[in-house]
């Protein structure tokens, strides 16, 4: 090999960078498993929509609620899964059951490195749970 010194350094840098997630996971003790969510303690068993939809697309629902409430003042939401009517409110409807932001919202958001700007305006309920 010609210029072996430089090229081997380059190859090592490439391999280390390309496999960096493997090193990172091996060196940090943290488990990569999904966080366990605390379910509502107020006896409520069903959400506004089906669990699968809420897990993947709750941000769509919240966005839709925000626009509806802020722009039209319409606060009633009819669930497409159960047909029940809910008040479109993050603090009152969502947080009524999922009362602990740190254990519910933040668990997954921290895991996924997501920082939604809900709390730029909303005030997180204090003292619940």
């Amino acid at each position: 090999m010609y210029d072996a010194g430089k090229i081997i350094v380059g190859i090592v840098v490439f391999v280390v960078l390309a496999t960096s997630p493997l090193w990172f996971n091996a060196l940090t003790e943290a488990t990569p498993e999904a966080p366990k969510l605390t379910l509502p303690t107020n006896g409520s068993t069903e959400c506004v929509e089906a669990t699968g939809y809420m897990r993947a697309s709750h941000m769509d629902l919240l966005n839709q609620w925000r626009e509806q409430v802020v722009r039209t003042g319409q606060r009633d939401y009819v669930s497409s899964s159960s047909g029940k009517v809910f008040d479109m409110s993050l603090s009152r409807t969502c947080m009524d059951c999922h009362s602990n932001k740190a254990d519910f919202c933040d668990a997954c958001h921290t895991y996924m490195a997501v920082s939604p700007y809900c709390w730029d305006c909303h005030v997180e309920p204090k003292g619940a749970n």
Binding site: P21, L22, N25, A26, P32, E33, A34, P35, R55, C108, Y111, M112
Partner: peptide
């Protein structure tokens, strides 16, 4: 969240 659990598991 499920996707990450699987991918991070794959990387371990």
């Amino acid at each position: 969240v499920n996707v990450k659990a699987a991918i991070a598991g794959w990387a371990s």
